[in-house]
Computed example of a mutant assay.
Amino acid sequence: MPVRVLDNTTPSQVSGANSGKSSFQSCSLLGVGQTPLTPKIRHIEHGVPGFRVAFSGTQNVSSVQKDEAWRVNVRIQGCDLEHGYLCGSMEALNVPMADTPVVTFWEGEIVDTKNYTFFTGKWEATKEDDIRHWSKFPSFSPLLGQVEADGGKSLDLSNYPYIFMRWKEQYFVNVGTDCGLTIAGFYYICFSCSDGSISGFYYDPNSSPYQKLELKSTNDGRSGFSFSSYELQ
Rank of each mutant, 00 (worst) to 15 (best):
C87A: 11
R52P: 07
R75I: 10
W106D: 01
T117S: 11
H133A: 06
I41N: 08
V74P: 00
S22V: 04
V72Y: 09
E148N: 10
L81R: 08
S23T: 10
K153V: 15
E45I: 14
P161L: 10
S56G: 13
V72F: 08
G152N: 05
D67P: 04
F55I: 09
D156C: 15
K136C: 08
G121I: 11
S62E: 08
P96R: 12
H43P: 14
G50C: 13
G152S: 09
V48K: 12
I163H: 04
G151I: 01
T35N: 07
Y160V: 04
G31E: 01
V95T: 07
P36C: 13
Q77V: 06
V48L: 09
C87K: 03
A54M: 09
G50S: 07
L157D: 09
F51P: 04
S139F: 04
A54C: 07
E109R: 14
T58P: 09
K40C: 15
G47F: 01
N73M: 07
S89E: 02
A92M: 03
V61S: 05
A69K: 13
F118H: 02
S56R: 11
P142N: 15
T35F: 05
T35W: 04
R52Q: 13
L155S: 05
T113Y: 04
G78R: 02
P96E: 13
H46A: 12
L93S: 08
S56F: 13
P96F: 03
T35I: 08
L81F: 09
F105H: 07
W70P: 00
L155R: 02
S135T: 11
F118G: 00
I110G: 02
A54N: 04
L143M: 11
F137S: 02
F140P: 14
Y85P: 05
Q65E: 15
P142V: 05
F55N: 00
D67A: 07
N94F: 01
L30M: 13
P36N: 09
K40E: 14
A149S: 12
T117L: 08
H133R: 05
Q65I: 14
V53G: 01
G121K: 00
V32M: 10
T58M: 12
Q65F: 15
F105W: 11
G20Y: 09
T35H: 01
S28N: 14
I131K: 01
V95K: 00
D130F: 00
D156K: 14
K136A: 09
H133Q: 12
E128T: 06
S62A: 14
T113V: 11
R71Y: 08
G88T: 05
G145R: 05
Q146L: 06
N73C: 10
R71T: 13
G31K: 01
V103T: 06
F140S: 10
K153P: 15
H43G: 12
V95I: 05
D112M: 03
S63Q: 01
T104Q: 02
R42H: 14
F164R: 08
G33N: 14
F118D: 02
I76N: 00
L155W: 03
D99M: 09
K114A: 08
G31D: 05
S141P: 11
